[in-house]
Amino acid sequence: GRLQQPDGYLSSWYQRIRPGLRWTNLRDCHELYCAGHLIEGAVAYYQATGKRKLLDIMCRYADHIAETFGPEPGKKKGYCGHEEIELALVKLARITG
C-alpha cells in the first residue's frame, strides 16, 4: 500500500525501474495482466481471511484503470491481449458489489 501512487496506480516495475513509462506499451509489458493477477490475489485473500486492506488498495487501482482507459475523450484506448484484467475486474465487482 505504501508503494501505491496518489492516483491509485500500482506497479513496482514502472514505479522503480521504468518511471514515466506506465501504460506506454500494453502489448508487451503486461501491466494490465499483472494488475489482474494482483486484483485476483486480493479477492482471494479477502475471501480467505476477511481482511480488506489489500482489497481496498486494489479497488483504488481498479478505479485508476477505469479512469485511465475507455472510449471517452482523453482516455487511453487499448488492451493488452490477455483476458486476465477482465476476469479480475468481474471477481472484484462480485465481491465488492
Rank of each mutant, 00 (worst) to 15 (best):
H37G: 01
R27Y: 10
C59Q: 15
E83Q: 13
L54C: 00
L92I: 09
N25I: 00
D28I: 03
E86G: 15
P19F: 05
E84R: 12
G74F: 06
K75E: 08
C29F: 12
E84V: 11
C29V: 05
A44M: 06
R16I: 07
N25D: 15
Q47A: 10
S12N: 05
E86W: 09
K53W: 06
K51C: 05
T49L: 01
C29A: 09
R22A: 15
Y61E: 04
W23V: 10
E40A: 08
C29M: 10
R60T: 01
G81W: 09
S11P: 00
E86Y: 14
R2Q: 08
L89Q: 11
W23R: 09
V90A: 15
G36I: 05
T49N: 07
W23K: 04
P71G: 14
K53G: 03
L54S: 05
G70V: 00
N25Y: 02
L92N: 06
K76E: 10
M58T: 07
E83T: 14
R22V: 02
G74N: 07
W13C: 11
K75H: 12
L92R: 15
A93F: 12
R18Q: 14
A62D: 15
A44K: 14
L10R: 09
I65D: 03
Y61W: 03
R16V: 08
T96N: 07
M58V: 02
R16Y: 05
C29D: 14
E72V: 06
A88C: 11
E84W: 12
V43H: 01
P19R: 12
R52P: 06
C59E: 11
L3F: 02
R2C: 02
S11R: 04
P6L: 04
G20S: 10
A66K: 11
K76M: 12
I17W: 07
C29P: 00
P19D: 08
V43L: 00
T49V: 04
K91M: 08
C29K: 11
G36H: 02
A42Q: 01
I57L: 02
G1K: 07
R52W: 03
G50Y: 02
E31T: 13
T49S: 14
L26K: 13
L89M: 15
E86N: 15
L10W: 13
A48E: 12
E40N: 13
